[in-house]
């Protein structure tokens, strides 16, 4: 792995920024160079939000992702807005409990009903981002599980740690649908 660029997109309030932070922190624990940036509207919730993580063995110059290797989409609008920036044959990971239509693409598509899994197991959809991170680990093994877990623990201390870790585990155990049509 020389350099991997990941974009996580969704709606404000889904924890898109936190997801990027945890992934970035875990990669730093693994000894990688990391830049994480974010972009969101002036509103607190409801508009599209994105978080970008660049993980590299070398020093990272430009901090902003133009074309990503991995795109995570957690809302229909976010998918439609960001799909054009996914590299040819890149990896697309979607929450298919929210996203129903995937536009035509050459990407390798993986679908996990993250929101559904979060609601069913933990009663709240806000854990969907942890499920997605688990699914990402399972599909790509981008950052080792032990570092991901440490990053979750360090980023979400206190009472919520255990549920977030369980949600992450659920993501690892999930069976993503490959190339759904």
């Amino acid at each position: 792995m020389k350099k991997i660029e990941i974009r996580i997109s969704g709606l404000g309030g889904q924890g898109v920024v936190l997801t990027g932070q945890i992934l970035g922190k875990a990669a730093v624990y693994e000894g990688k160079n990391v830049v994480q940036t974010q972009s969101y509207g002036a509103e607190a919730r409801g508009t599209t939000a994105k978080s970008e993580v660049i993980i590299s063995e070398n020093k990272i110059g430009f901090p902003i992702v133009r074309k990503c290797d991995i795109l995570i989409a957690m809302s229909q609008e976010a998918l439609e807005k960001n799909l054009k920036d996914l590299k040819e044959n890149g990896i697309l990971l979607i929450d298919n409990s929210i996203i129903k239509i995937v536009p035509k693409t050459n990407a390798k598509i993986y679908a996990v009903p993250a929101t559904e899994i979060a609601e069913k197991n933990f009663g709240q959809k806000l854990y969907a981002n942890m499920v997605i991170l688990g699914a990402l680990t399972q599909i790509t093994n981008l950052v080792k599980e032990k570092f991901m877990e440490k990053a979750i623990k360090d980023s979400l201390p206190g009472k919520s740690t255990s549920i977030n870790l369980q949600a992450y585990k659920k993501g690892i155990e999930s069976v993503p649908t490959f190339n759904p049509r």
Binding site: Q21, G24, N33, V34, V35, Q36, T37, Q38, P63
Partner: peptide, 9 residues
């Protein structure tokens, strides 16, 4: 904004 908001090691 970019330098103050981004995260790096």
């Amino acid at each position: 904004e970019v330098t103050a908001h981004m995260r790096e090691q």
